[in-house]
Every structure is written in C-alpha cells, then in structure tokens.
C-alpha cells in the first residue's frame, strides 16, 4: 500500500479539500494520504469530507497551528 504526502499549509477553504480530493482520485483503495494543513476550518471540513466520501480518517493531530491528518482510501 502506497503512502502519499500532501502539503496544504497556507491554503484556504476550499482549496485543501479540492487538492485532497484530486490526490485521492489517483490513489488505490487501502493507500494512505498524509496531509498537513493550516486552514482554521480544516478539522471540521476534513471530518465532513471523509463522512461524505466514505474514506477513513485514521488520525488527526494539531500542533502550533499545523494540522496533520492521515487518510485511508476506501472504495
């Protein structure tokens, strides 16, 4: 299973989820996507996004204004 990193720091809504959805399309089921973001609405948005798209949010961490998430692609 591949693991891909995506830097969304400095991007504002809606760009983080736009970039994430584009990158996720290129991945295979089971692949992981690690994202770093600084958009203040990112936590709420990424949670809503995985709920809608059916992917897994494996982890969420935040430190010094940078939010790190690990997503796993589902079918």
């Amino acid at each position: 299973m591949a693991s891909v990193e995506l830097d969304c720091k400095g991007l504002n809504c809606p760009m983080p989820i736009v970039r994430i959805s584009r990158t996720m399309k290129e991945l295979q089921v089971g692949d992981q996507l690690q994202v770093e973001a600084s958009d203040p609405s990112f936590q709420s948005d990424i949670e809503a996004w995985v709920r809608k798209m059916g992917h897994d949010l494996k982890s969420f961490e935040e430190s010094q204004g940078v939010q790190k998430v690990v997503l796993e692609k589902r079918a």
């Binding site: 809504c13 989820i17 736009v18 959805s21 584009r22 996004w49 809608k52």
Partner: peptide, 10 residues
C-alpha cells in the same frame, strides 16, 4: 467556493 467544494465532495 461552493462549486469547487461540491466537486471535491464528489
């Protein structure tokens, strides 16, 4: 913003 967000939400 809503248009791009919608596409991102599939």
């Amino acid at each position: 913003t809503i248009a791009l967000g919608s596409v991102a939400m599939g």
